[in-house]
């Protein structure tokens, strides 16, 4: 494994803040570093928490902003999410979810909770889901190895455009079947069967490989 020693925490942090990024750092090492920060946060290490925030807040804010559709609400959600992370970091289990997916999942769930409680309907049309950019090098591309990502994206691309858009909008906008149906002006039963069939096809495509 190429040495993480070349990518100490500060260097990684600094590099993210510049606009021209050198190649993505070794994902396994970056993931291990985030895991270490999360474990230290679990022991109430404020410095580790601060660095964790520096490395992950743009991702979590991006998630909250898209789902809430409102900057002030997204700030409140991200505030709450980091307090949850501070309190619950001890519950993160290395070896299960990657640190960034664990945190991103919390952010997505809290943002969805906010939107449902506030009664805000997600404002973006469904086509916007496909406007989320295609895979680009990302310093936080830590959730999986390149192979696994490539396979998922390949299988997503294999779906027909309408099904793919529906699944993407469910994920990126945090929509339920009912909300997807309203947005697409399509009967609930139709949306359900389109998405369910798409999910099964996705599973079949991914399932040709061994399970994780």
């Amino acid at each position: 494994m190429p040495g993480w020693s070349r990518h100490d925490g500060r260097g990684f942090c600094n590099r993210r803040s510049r606009s021209t990024l050198p190649p993505v750092p070794d994902p396994a090492a970056a993931r291990a570093h985030l895991g270490d920060l999360l474990i230290r946060t679990g022991s109430e290490d404020r410095a580790a928490f601060g660095e964790l925030y520096d490395l992950t807040s743009a991702k979590l804010f991006g998630i909250a902003l898209r789902i809430c559709g409102d900057r002030a609400a997204a700030e409140d959600v991200v505030h709450e999410v980091y307090l949850l992370i501070w309190r619950r970091a001890g519950a993160w289990e290395p070896g299960r979810a990657s640190p960034i997916s664990w945190m991103a999942t919390i952010a997505r769930n809290r943002a969805i909770d906010w939107r449902r409680a506030a009664g805000v309907r997600a404002a973006q049309p469904i086509e916007a889901a496909d406007a989320v950019p295609d895979p680009a090098p990302d310093a936080l591309a830590l959730a999986a190895t390149g192979d696994e990502r490539a396979r998922l994206f390949g299988c997503m691309d294999g779906l027909d455009p309408r099904t793919r858009a529906a699944i993407r909008t469910a994920f990126f906008d945090g929509l339920t079947y009912r909300e997807v149906a309203i947005r697409e002006a399509t009967p609930l039963a139709t949306i359900k069967s389109v998405i369910r069939r798409g999910l099964i096809r996705l599973r079949d495509c991914l399932g040709r490989e061994a399970a994780p």
């Binding site: 743009a58 505030h79 696994e148 990502r149």
Partner: peptide, 24 residues
Amino acid sequence: RVRLAQLFDLWPDAVPPPELIDRI
């Protein structure tokens, strides 16, 4: 959950306002 989490990589980043960390 693990599979879908890979989609988080596609999520566009957005930089939060600098004072947010102070609030937290």
